[in-house]
Amino acid sequence: MTWDWNVVDDFMPRFWDGVLLTLQALVLGSLIAFSLGLVWAIAQRSRFAAVRWPVNIITEFIRNTPLLVQLFFLYYVVPEWGPSLTSLTTGIIGLGLHYSTYTAEVYRAGIGGVPTGQWEAATALSLPRSRTWAAVILPQAIRRVVPALGNYVIAMLKDSPLIAIIGALEMFGEAESFSNETFTFEAYTIVGIAFILIAYPASLLIRLLERRLAITS
């Protein structure tokens, strides 16, 4: 084995392109996951079984089937009926949708952790349902779920190379195409290390956050 720094130099510009795309997918995917997950979680507490059951079934199905296959589904099947989207857009939607079913669980636990007395006090004051959610329940629930949400961003980071399989050239996709062209191994290695180098400090940050929240609450 001989590590060739020239290969590394050649790969670097494409590596940075890939990093940019990875971050883009991660940020937008997280935004979808955070907001859609909240929608799921609130719908799961609906008074109407006709809302609860379909949402429960959909989220359960999405969470328990592979992201890769869901990406294929979005990429190959959806354009048959609907609009064709770019690989990157499809990938972002896929990541966001998949992880929204996890964040929904996080929100659900957070909402369940708000004491019943808070709901009762809101009832006793006749606060409307929307106000109860917006001013009383969610502010308390979201605070305690922030670290858990952060954990899923890291999990999403590690799943983000999957969007390369449908053609969105993020870090890993760049490494794969570069390596295929040059028959070299350095790019894979660099990208593999890059994932660890991003994920580790991020998880330290979240643990710090967890500890801070545990103290203040």
Binding site: L157, K158, D159, S160, P161, L162, F172, E176, S179, F185, Y188, T189, V191, G192, F195, I196, L197, I198, A199, Y200, S203
Partner: peptide, 15 residues
């Protein structure tokens, strides 16, 4: 824990 399994697979097979 920080490793992406997909990247690890490709590394094992191609690198």
């Amino acid at each position: 824990r920080g490793t992406s399994s997909l990247v690890l697979m490709f590394w094992l097979v191609f690198a």
